[in-house]
Design a protein around this nucleic acid. Sequence first.
DNA 1: GTCTATAGTTCGATAGAC
DNA 2: GTCTATCGAACTATAGAC
Lengths: 224, 224
Amino acid sequence: MNVIDDSTNLDTVSGDGDGDGNSNGRRIRKGERSRMRILDAAARLLSCRGYAATTLTDIAGAAEMQAGSLYYHFDSKDAIVEEVLSVGIDHARAAIDAALEALGPEARGSDRLAEAIVAYVNCIVAESNFTVANIRCFNESPPQTRESLAVPLRDFTNLWVGLLAEGQADGSLRADSNARVLARIMISGLNSLASWYRPGGELRLEDLARQFADMVLDGLHPPD
Amino acid sequence: MNVIDDSTNLDTVSGDGDGDGNSNGRRIRKGERSRMRILDAAARLLSCRGYAATTLTDIAGAAEMQAGSLYYHFDSKDAIVEEVLSVGIDHARAAIDAALEALGPEARGSDRLAEAIVAYVNCIVAESNFTVANIRCFNESPPQTRESLAVPLRDFTNLWVGLLAEGQADGSLRADSNARVLARIMISGLNSLASWYRPGGELRLEDLARQFADMVLDGLHPPD
DNA sequence: GTCTATAGTTCGATAGAC
DNA sequence: GTCTATCGAACTATAGAC
């Protein structure tokens, strides 16, 4: 998944297969494409090097331009970082929403939670550098950047709190726990995958997601 | 807990109450005390600001000296950071070992795991800035620093893997899970407390540790 | 041991040509 | 839009006085 999937520009919603997000030649301005290259490059570098170790020279190099050129598209380094991290949250939400929608509205809370876990694991491990950049760089970023992301991040936490609360309400999850505390612990445990899980090892991606879901759910299922 | 508790210098093992770690006046050299002030100051700043945002001027200021003076005691910023992070691992190990020893050797694996969780939560939330500095700064530190800490960090992970394996062996924990994967997820979930838990809120420390242990253990208990 | 002063780097940001 | 050149700030590290 790259940044193009999340653009609000209707010209870029994809599906045409020629890579520029449009089927009639290049109606997208050159500057718009450069902007996306910058964000993709920044997401890749931020996700594996962190905030401080990612310089504008690095980003520009990965986007095949010079450092000074970045300022035509963005006001500052932090503006780039903020957009990458914001898109990272969007990617995660989109992945989870799609999985829940595919499950149908009548599913039990515990099943919806399990699907959300699998979708988020997949997003972190296999789909979005933007999401990994957000996980890794949020705490390293300047206070102003963190404040700008506070609302979407709170919404993301609340998405999990809501899933837990649904399950508690329909009886598929035990109700003697604080949903907000559990949500934070769960999210952190999931986020940690970005630090240590590497595809291609002995542990397959599907098994990882399932094992995580099993651990959480068996811990949350009401005793028989 | 401060760095003095972990010094290998027998003159500093404490208990005398006068603060210099020795009961017959100040047999400890002035430089040794300064070194400890530096480490304590660095741990405090690193734990709440992170690696890049903690400057030598900050550390020196908190230790009541000038930046240049730090180089009498340490070779570089990274040498300070490395020692702080290393002591942080030592603090965590010591807290867990003490709790397990107090429990006695005949305790079941699941009880030992629960005690370790409570001890580690307490270390993070209430005891050691060094441990929090390690949790926060390890990923932000230069590669060379991370490599230097690889061995003690692996040992720390193995401590948890061992606890899980003990419980699986004596039947108090379910055996159909990968102990190494569970250990990493658990450690990350616990480490996340450093980011969001703040003492004095509505959630009491004991309840937090217990809720975490309950979630993990009920998820790990064999089905009845 | 600690201080003051400063050298040497790195990096974000700006200016102006093309 | 992108490039080259450079400014200015921040920080690590060093040198030498005391």
